[in-house]
Design a protein around this nucleic acid. Sequence first.
DNA 1: CAACAAGTGGACAGATGTGTCCATTTGTGG
DNA 2: CCACAAATGGACACATCTGTCCACTTGTTG
Lengths: 189, 189
Amino acid sequence: MANSQLRSDAVRNRDRILDAARELFASSTDVSMCEVARRAGVGQATLYRNFPDHRALTAEVLVEQIERITELGVERAGDPDAFFVLLRNLVEDMADLYALGELARRDACVGSQLEQHRERIAELMKRPLSDAKAAGTLRRDTSLDDVFLVLLMAKGAMTRAQGAAARGAAANRALTLTLEGLMPSSARI
Amino acid sequence: MANSQLRSDAVRNRDRILDAARELFASSTDVSMCEVARRAGVGQATLYRNFPDHRALTAEVLVEQIERITELGVERAGDPDAFFVLLRNLVEDMADLYALGELARRDACVGSQLEQHRERIAELMKRPLSDAKAAGTLRRDTSLDDVFLVLLMAKGAMTRAQGAAARGAAANRALTLTLEGLMPSSARI
DNA sequence: CAACAAGTGGACAGATGTGTCCATTTGTGG
DNA sequence: CCACAAATGGACACATCTGTCCACTTGTTG
């Protein structure tokens, strides 16, 4: 590990910084580096040596989130209704770290890091998507792009909700609407 | 009018400021007062006399948008498929002034002004909503809250789209998904 | 336990944004 | 056309955030 070259206190500080960042990013989009440092109980120099700028810190926390989500997903990969389970999981994870997605979008870390995110989710959902279509539980014209659209829609649904619980509820309702639709089947085109 | 008490050049400047604000707010969420003043070709003092702070300016532009949207809607009020037409209109309007919604959410102008917005849209959609349910073109368990959820979802769908056209497309796809659902009717619960 | 390099904290410079102030300009009513 | 109040513009004081620097502290290794 690269970590083994770090002094023990340096490792501890790095972890503290990431913890603080995770906590702060979860609830608010506008967090200054100064604030992160204070919350972590370290000086600014320490923060900036570990993460050269605001973007780098965001990226690191984002990557962690991605890892967690994809790991969680891989387990269900074979499952017949994996598509729906995974989708719900993704959406719920977003509810936990709502502000982070917001942050990632604003910072230009978006370019490299978020594309990676996208790629991994695409990889994760590909099989379940075609399985669900084959099983007849999903409309045949559903595309991978639609999956991302649904994620964004769920994210939008959380906008006005306060607190992780309310966000989760809103996201779930949004997902249900998207899956089942508002029109009765008899009125469909 | 309160305007009749203003000097003619003052009126002109006020309009210029609002024009500039509208233009800038349409494309970006992060606009400084300084920038608005420069774009409008007025000094900062002029800007600040008309709108005491950032919030006041946002609110004014927001109110204008609300007026336009609701007016547009009132015309179709009687129409049998008014619900769907209005929903699509609202969503498309949001695509035009995407950043403004974002701005409104961030500024605490949300409290009073955005609640008003909500109220007016609620008033506007109430009739069409129950008409559509009565006509059988809408699921009977659809609530007014769902309408707002759909708006937020459409807004979310626009997140990654660049340019008004792309945003419009994303929003429309989102609306279609929400109305028709991703599941084939045979697979519904 | 000593010596040294790795690591640290807080002060600081520079950039950017907000809102205020006042000397000067410009419409307007008589 | 004049006098005056309304309106203006840009400088400025104040706040906040970013990222750097350096004198000092602390872990580590022999």
